[in-house]
Every structure is written in structure tokens, then in C-alpha cells.
Design a protein around this nucleic acid. Structure first.
Lengths: 233, 233
DNA sequence: TCGGTTAATATGTGCAGACATAATAACCTC
DNA sequence: GAGGTTATTATGTCTGCACATATTAACCGA
């Protein structure tokens, strides 16, 4: 950063470009000047302009192509970034105390939808866990998890004491995953565990993770009513 | 990129660092070498290592602090990036035909929750729109929207013909917004419009946007059953 | 030993110059 | 003109160097 001067950094360039887009100096779909031209105008190096424009492109505000140049996105596909924390952190971030209870543990062949989501054969046995997470003693989220025993290092912990999620993070080399959000009516089991009416609208998070070769775990989180996922754009 | 050589770019550095984290050469919580040391090891400039490590920090895999150094995140707060497209694009991306019907348009004082979410006084009148979006003729999402007439440029379009969302993107300088996801039972109105049972679990998206000074719009999207938001991590 | 000042250090960002790459535009041939 | 080749151009990235900044670690005096 230039000594003493409060302007000229890439964040300032980004802010100024964004301002021009928002006041429609550069309306949606319009081409904007080249990096070279902007660098000259702002009196900075091209690399600095590049950094600013790149960030805006990642955010979905600009579209860039070599040789073609840079244009303002016509229909900005806004990219919202969500933090997916560990449940304990999520509860504690709300200023509440986190605890959990292991409700059941078993070894079984998963149902077909879970098996296919994990890319498993029909006979592969897995570990099944049901855990209720509490915030200040109130039901917060009901977790049902399938674990692939083939990729877990021995010895397995006592999942009544150790959160499966946090143990996995600390002991298994993950590689890929996907997350999905949806809504579903509470199943009888979920209704009983969370203390809500059967069929009540629940927010559902489903996560699947793999190592490079094999599936690790599939989790379904049924959140207590009132749960929201929120983010700034 | 170095001529002819397929390695040595920042993406390769990022991949190699990620590999070492995943095979636990560098386990969660561990410090990793300094940029200088990695640059020497890989035979690249420090700026290249910096780019790679910065991306991993943004992704939540690394935690970096000046002078303190870089460590592997102990409890990786995974950052999931969601694309929030325009509804028309969303429908078309599924290979379906998009259409919509304006169900009602009025000018009214919004209910208190909406007014407070927008930071409005209790008497501010707004435009209220109800729109049903269809995918291949089937109900896809029911949109209820409050629009601030004070920030809209004249003339207003015919919202029966022009999607409010796309008109806004093209004509109003937005600045900030927030998005929230939740689940809710279908209200009588939503049930009738979407053709589902009252109380059925619906996935709800709520968006609010502002200019620098004034609120622009608050939207509630009630998605037809089966809707999912999905992303890779 | 405590508390505050100073030095050391890893990351954050800047610059100028160079070459790579992708995609368009210009050109040339038939 | 149509089709294929070549030149041009804007972005993408790398290098090497410099200085800023935030923290920590070392130091030192009361």
C-alpha cells in the first residue's frame, strides 16, 4: 500500500468500479475499459486493477473473457457465500450452550436412496447414528448419519461422548462433499425427537462427503422450527 | 505460466498444499511453512505461493495471520458458495419452459414485519405484487414482493408482462442485500396457488435489497415441494 | 516480576516488466 | 463470397523486488 495515502489499493479500485456499475455509468451488459486503461486512469499498476476486477468477476458482478474484454453482468448470478460451521460452533455463536445425546447406534445396510447417493453396492454395511443436538437444553437439530466403516481409522471413539462430526474432521482425510438444503414435513420419528407436530415444516440440510476414492459419510440434519440460513450479498 | 512446463502455477501449488493437508502431512491445527520456504521448495516466487494460500484461506481450509503464520483450520468452517440466479434462468437450467402470471397488484402499507425488515416508517405505502412462476406450466414458485415506489424510475412497466425481478436488475441501482432460507408450512393462500395441502412443508427464500440509502424491495419466494438448493464444497 | 517499549517477522499489498493463452479480427486464397 | 490461416489484443499469470502492517517475541527499567 502506498505510504500514508488512503486510496489506490485494489479494494478502492473495486469499490469505485462497483460504484460506477451501481450508478449506471456502466449499465448491465456494457463493456468497461481495459485493465490498461483503468490502470492509467487510477494511476496504479495493471496487476492492481486485475486483482479488483477478478474479485468482482468471482462475485458474479463482472464477466471477463480474454481478448473479448470485461462487461457488466446483464443478469447478475449473485453468488452467496454461506458458512457451514460445525453444529457446536453454530449453537455457541448464538450465545447458547451446546450439548448432544446419542439416541441410537447400529450397523446396517443403508436404504437405497442413501446407498445410491454414496455410490455403494446394495450389500455394503455401514454404521448408523442418531444424535440429537441441544441448544440450552432445547432440541436444536436431529442428526441421522451413515458412516462408512471401511475408511474410518481404528479405534472408533464412543460417539455418545465425542461428536461424530468433530471426530471425523480431526481423524479422516476428506476430499469432496456436497450440501443440499430443502424443506420436509417432520416424520413421526423427527416429530417425537424434536417435540413438534408430525408433518411440521422442517428445514433439512443434507451433506455427503468422500475421500478421493470412497464415501465417508452421509448426514441428514432436521432443524427445529424457526431455523434460518442467512447471508449478506 | 512458465513456458512448456505444466507445473508451477498457483493452482498446482494450491493442489499440492491441499493434498498435504488431506493426507495429514499437515494435520488440522498444524502450522505450515512460511510463504518464503514454500516458494523456495516449489521453485516459484513468493507471490505465487501467496495466491495459492490466499485462495485456500478464503475457502476456509487455512487460517492466516500476519507474523503468526499459516495453520490448517482445526474445525474448517466450510464456505459453500450458492448461485442465486434469476428464476427464469433457474427454470431454464432445468430444461423447462418458464412462464409467470401476475396474480395481484396493489398499493398498500406493508405489514409490520416487512416494514421493519426494510427499515420503513409505519405509514410508508408500497407496491405489492403476487406472482406465480411456472415451469412447463406447473407451479414452481409463488413470489410475493413489496416494492418501494420512491426509488423506482418512471415509467413503471406492466408487471403482468415484465418480470419484476428482471426489470429491477435492469433499471435500479442496487447496492446491498441479504438472503435467508427457511422452511414453513404453506399458508392457505400459498396452498391454493401452488396446489398443495395447507400446512405442507415449503422451502422459503427471502431477499431484501437496498440502494445506499433506501430499501428497494422485499421478496418472499415459496417454492413448490421438492425444491432443493444444492452446492459442491 | 510486572508492564511497557522496541525489534523481529510472516503476511498483505504494491510496482514494472514479461510471456502465455484464448478469442476475435483481419487477411488471403480459391 | 466461403473457408481457412495469421495477426492482434485483453486477460491470466509469473517473477523479483519493495514496503506496509499486524503481531509476536525480546528486551529493559522500575
Amino acid at each position: 500500500m502506498r505510504a500514508g495515502v488512503g486510496i489506490g489499493g485494489w479494494e478502492d479500485i473495486r469499490a469505485e468500479v462497483l460504484r460506477r456499475i451501481r450508478v449506471r455509468d456502466w449499465p448491465p451488459g456494457a463493456m468497461i475499459p481495459t485493465e490498461e486503461e483503468l490502470a492509467t486512469e487510477f494511476g496504479v499498476a495493471r496487476a492492481t486493477v486485475n486483482r479488483a476486477l477478478r474479485e468482482l468477476a468471482v462475485a458474479g458482478v463482472l464477466e471477463r473473457r480474454r481478448k473479448a474484454g470485461t462487461r457488466v453482468a446483464a443478469l447478475p448470478v449473485r453468488k452467496a457465500t454461506l458458512d457451514i460451521p460445525v453444529i457446536r460452533q453454530e449453537v455457541e455463536a448464538r450465545g447458547q450452550r451446546h450439548s448432544f445425546r446419542l439416541l441410537s447406534q447400529a450397523e446396517a445396510v443403508p436404504p437405497v436412496p442413501v446407498a445410491s447417493r454414496l455410490g455403494l453396492g446394495p450389500e455394503q454395511r455401514m454404521i448408523y447414528l442418531e444424535t440429537l443436538h441441544l441448544a440450552d437444553g432445547q432440541p436444536f437439530v436431529f442428526e441421522t448419519r451413515w458412516l462408512n466403516p471401511l475408511v474410518l481409522p481404528a479405534p472408533l471413539p464412543d460417539f455418545a461422548t465425542v461428536s461424530a462430526n468433530e471426530w471425523l474432521v480431526a481423524h479422516v482425510a476428506y476430499a469432496l462433499g456436497d450440501i443440499a438444503f430443502s424443506a420436509a414435513g417432520a416424520t413421526p420419528r423427527e416429530a417425537a425427537v424434536l417435540g413438534v407436530a408430525e408433518g411440521a415444516a422442517l428445514f433439512i440440510t443434507e451433506r455427503t462427503t468422500w475421500t478421493a476414492e470412497a464415501p465417508i459419510t452421509a448426514v441428514r440434519l432436521a432443524h427445529a422450527p424457526g431455523y434460518r440460513v442467512q447471508t449478506l450479498v
